[in-house]
């Protein structure tokens, strides 16, 4: 499969099945999707529709039952766990619904963790900078348990951007927050996304949040359809 330079993610006939006692459950069926560098994409759908599973496959957290996934020019469905981890370290950032900060580390240490693990030298300075950007410079030595939900998610966003990833995956980033806080977190996410030129893939069941993305896809019972009129030549969904 060849990928044009603009393409950042491409999937072909992507399927994910889970074997259950007695039968097989199809979680994803024939997903064909292309996402270009710099796109902001929302995947919306009801709970259990398979959107988080797709996110996991696109980010290389999991491997498909069949089909292909190309991320940053490499076919990741054929890569080992460790090779996919290395690829994630180079290109991918995450923001999770339940923040998933390490409770033992302070806000700053959580932010710098991916950069330090990748062996980057200026991690602390950049971490401080990012925390300032997300408005938490006063709380950088606080531990997650000492921060509110909104603050924790801002730390998580700072953590996601510290390695300057080419692509950011966000799984329901504001679902655990009240609407005002959620809105602020979303603003921050889009702002950083714009300023850093990052590709954004966002999973949500919130139509308003999805509407802020350039492209929206609807996931229903394991099948994906693009919700808005497709901009010519930018993506293909099947």
């Amino acid at each position: 499969m060849s990928v044009t330079p603009e393409l950042f993610i491409q999937t072909r006939q992507l399927c994910k099945q889970v074997a259950l006692p007695g039968n097989t459950l199809n979680i994803l069926t024939d997903i064909n999707l292309t996402i270009n560098r710099g796109d902001s994409v929302a995947i919306v759908g009801a709970s259990g529709s398979g959107k988080s599973t797709l996110l996991g496959l696109l980010a290389g957290l999991d491997v498909p039952s069949s089909g292909e996934v190309v991320l940053a020019g490499r076919r990741i469905d054929a890569l080992s766990d460790d090779a996919r981890a290395e690829l994630r370290a180079q290109h991918v950032g995450f923001v999770f619904q339940s923040f998933l900060l390490l409770p033992a580390l302070s806000a700053l240490e959580n932010v710098t963790l991916p950069a330090e693990l990748a062996g980057q030298r200026d991690a602390t300075a950049r971490g401080k900078q990012l925390l300032e950007l997300v408005g938490l410079s006063e709380r950088m030595h606080f531990f997650p348990a000492q921060l509110s939900g909104g603050e924790q998610q801002r730390v998580a966003i700072a953590r996601a951007f510290i390695t300057q990833p080419a692509i950011l995956f966000a799984d329901e980033p504001s679902a655990n927050l009240d609407s005002a806080t959620g809105r602020r977190v979303e603003d921050l996410l889009f702002e950083l996304n714009r300023s850093q030129g990052t590709t954004l893939v966002l999973v949500t069941h919130n139509p308003q949040l999805a509407a802020r993305c350039q492209r929206q896809f609807l996931m229903d019972a394991g099948r994906l359809t693009e919700a808005l009129p497709m901009a010519e030549g930018r993506s293909h969904v099947g």
Binding site: D82, A85, R88, V92, A104, L117, A118
Partner: peptide
């Protein structure tokens, strides 16, 4: 378990 899953998601390999 979750901490390990998080650092792995952030790009840490199993040997690391």
């Amino acid at each position: 378990q979750m901490a390990v899953a998080v650092i792995k998601a952030l790009g840490v390999t199993a040997p690391l």
